[in-house]
Amino acid sequence: MPRFEGKVALVTGAGRGQGRSHAVRFAAEGADLVLSDRCADLGTVPYGLASATDLEETVASVEAAGGRAVAMEADVRDTAALGRVVAAGIEAFGGIDIVVANAGIAGVSTIAAMSDEEWQNMIDINLGGVFKTLRAVAGHMAERGSGRIVATSSVVGRVGAPNIGHYVAAKWGVIGLVKSLALELAEHGVTVNAVCPTSVDTAMIQNEAFRELFLPDQSSYTMADVEGAFTELNPIPIPWVQPDDISDTVLFLASDEARMITGEAVPVALGWNARTAA
């Protein structure tokens, strides 16, 4: 029997990238999906965010994989919008069993040169958005006495990293949030964990800002030019992993196999974490 037969999974940031991959993989293993994305660009983010068309494409992919899908535009900073997503999911499928708080942005700046707006958007989306997503389902799951929550942190949620201090701060915060919620929901049969990826081959790193960061002296280049720089971050000598690799761990944490795992942050990080205490 498929691992997620009869289960309902909610995924934020489902328009493309990791979120889309998680959604399609859950569908392929029997789940129905509740999907959300902001579906619009944002001023301080140096690359285009997912569009409404991207989200529609995710819905089509979920359906092609055998799942049903409800999809809504929602910014994870918007409590009311998240409430509507959760309500729509419960109405369509009767409840929500799994939540993947995946939506997030990246940006590049030293802390000394960072604008208030860059900092604030990052914290509001990558930390506040995870809080609001988790809060939107915590009561529902506690009431049902079961549930699986997986939040996307990062390998830099356990270490410092230059040029992305706001991202690092938010991702550390996600782990603190996850561990605390794990303690609060344990008696209700809900597990709460984080996955901590290294670089993943998505639009979040395939953009001019990151190319410039790694190769500031070149005026034009392709991702092939920065493969070496990304590879240097990882003991397993490849530049980045694929969204599917992260989905493998997200689905494991959402499965019955992980029922005794909660409050944990699992690095899928090509060994970056081997050099750290985490």
Binding site: I236, V266, P267, A274
Partner: peptide, 8 residues
């Protein structure tokens, strides 16, 4: 792609 990890 998971290595050097401690999974609790």
């Amino acid at each position: 792609y998971i290595t050097g990890a401690t999974l609790s």
